[in-house]
Write a protein that binds this DNA or RNA. Structure first.
Lengths: 197, 197
DNA sequence: CAAAATTCTTGACCTATATCAAGCAAAGCC
DNA sequence: GGCTTTGCTTGATATAGGTCAAGAATTTTG
């Protein structure tokens, strides 16, 4: 479980012994490609750290599927509001590949706050960072064209483009697969091939 | 400062004595119409509770102003990432009317975590709720038409429509003032006037 | 490895929304 | 109370991006 410990250490900046306490509450889990971590309407009972593989968070709407986000290695996954506030999940969370996780249930999660006094504060900072990322995403949706959103996302997450069906990326950027495909076909500004004689 | 106390009590569910401790760290402040609570590039040093009046959070982009949100009475206001992580502010926060606030500076804010043991946890829950609201907003931007977004926002915040310039609402919904105006002109489904003989 | 299922691309066409421009209405100000 | 500023509406026109449909390319599966 070194990867989880390492992540928490770099991200949360926490003591060695606290770190082991935290990690010991997580248990390994596997979810096969196509299976669900969470289905819409259920009550999310777990929080997980993705060790390997990819998940898609999405919801059906008007006969389409709106992809909200794609999460991979070294990300936490859960439906925050369902997990914390005990509400029915708004999203489906499905494995896009065979995946391995470290998972904690609610009961153990409660213990975290008792065992590690700084836990709530660290978690607060973590969620605040996520909040800020969503704010930026909203700003992009409000102010950028489809092509600019593509560029911005490609710059930030280039590795995703050969790991998941592109239609999902199109959806989370707020465009159709066709528009996505046409943007990709265009010669990109950063493409230097045309300068080679 | 009863309004702040009442808000914290209902929202955070906190003990009477803790409540007073918390409230005592905030000091009253006024910001006149048109003045700024925060300007882009500055380091946000305060967190405030809006007692009265309205603020607009926005950023310039390509010669336009993108309104990110409008906040009023009983909302907290700050730039979370700037305040917590000490980064330059991405947004401007401007008073749309004469406003009164209860404000806490960083130093006193640090004390909150010490004085009220549950503070970090409560704050975590609060930010988690904000996170969830942003998620919903993204879903709306990804899945709804301009008119549907208008309806959804109008249902949620009808009182805003006669308190702030409508162009700001248009902007935060991701449409131009012209489109906004045209949507408003259309007979609304919920408009029953046509049934009166 | 072939068949089936997905995913991606491409073209033709369409429509929601943007842009530009002008006039009108309301609000703030000496 | 007129003048100025700011905000809203409306029309004409343009365009980014959507839709539909078909085919090509992958990937998955028995």
């Amino acid at each position: 479980m070194k990867d989880l410990e390492k992540y928490i250490q770099t991200y949360f900046g926490i003591q060695r012994d606290d770190l082991e306490k935290i990690a010991s509450l997580f248990t390994p889990q596997k979810i096969a490609k196509g299976d669900y971590y969470l289905k819409q309407g259920m009550y999310c009972q777990t929080l997980s750290f993705i060790r390997s593989g990819l998940f898609r968070i999405y919801a059906p709407q008007d006969g389409k599927e709106i992809t909200q986000w794609i999460s991979g290695k070294d990300y936490f996954i859960t439906e925050l509001s369902s997990f914390i506030f005990n509400t029915p999940a708004k999203w489906n969370i499905q494995a896009l590949s065979d995946t391995t996780l470290y998972t904690i249930n609610k009961e153990s999660y409660q213990k975290l706050g008792i065992m590690v006094p700084k836990w709530h504060e660290l978690e607060k900072l973590f969620i605040a960072r996520c909040f800020s990322i969503l704010e930026d995403r909203i700003f992009n949706l409000l102010s950028l064209s489809a092509e600019e959103r593509y560029q911005s996302f490609f710059t930030a997450y280039p590795e995703l483009f050969n790991q998941v069906p592109l239609q999902y990326i199109a959806s989370l950027l707020g465009m159709t697969p066709e528009t996505f495909s046409r943007i990709r076909k265009k010669p990109q500004v950063s493409d230097t091939s045309k300068h080679i004689p």
